[in-house]
């Protein structure tokens, strides 16, 4: 091993003394490598003390800030997926049912029609609307063909 190779290993030699016997033996006999080891050892010690760790009162708010950032990023990234999933659900289930409600023909309301109209006959209009679904009742009042009403002798 050359001096340069051994000098490049000095951080490991300082960290794990005794684990690099060949290099350590060389350092004992080589002044340049000994100087290098002393220099790096002093650098390690001095720089460790040169930047003292900030107190907890300073690092805790910073940690919380980082956690919040990560939460925000998570929301930003996965929020898009959640919004996309919600859009798929709306498109798949809710919109067709809305459209089908709008597109229902009066014939499709036979049950409700009968129920509503019977209720209307048995009581008054407002009572009938409470018994059935309000929207369906309104639809019937506005759109039911006259013959249905006539058939029921309304």
């Amino acid at each position: 091993m050359t001096c340069k190779e051994i000098q490049a290993m000095i951080p490991e030699i300082l960290r794990e003394p005794g684990k690099h016997p060949e290099a350590e033996k060389h350092i004992e006999t080589c002044e340049a490598c000994r100087n290098e080891l002393a220099f790096i050892r002093s650098l390690q010690q001095e720089l460790r003390g040169a930047f003292p760790q900030p107190p907890l009162t300073e690092t805790i708010p910073r940690r919380i800030k980082v956690m919040r950032k990560v939460r925000y990023r998570t929301l930003q990234r996965y929020g898009i997926y959640a919004a996309a999933a919600a859009a798929v659900i709306v498109l798949t289930f809710l919109l067709p049912s809305l459209f089908s409600t709008q597109d229902r023909t009066p014939e499709m309301y036979t049950y409700y029609e009968t129920e509503t109209l019977e209720a209307m006959m048995a009581a008054d209009l407002s009572e009938g609307m409470r018994i059935s679904d309000e929207a369906i009742a309104l639809y019937l009042i506005e759109n039911a063909p006259m013959n249905t009403l006539e058939d029921l002798s309304f």
Partner: peptide, 9 residues
Amino acid sequence: TQEVFIKAW
């Protein structure tokens, strides 16, 4: 440091 943890995430 903040950037490090965001990158890690």
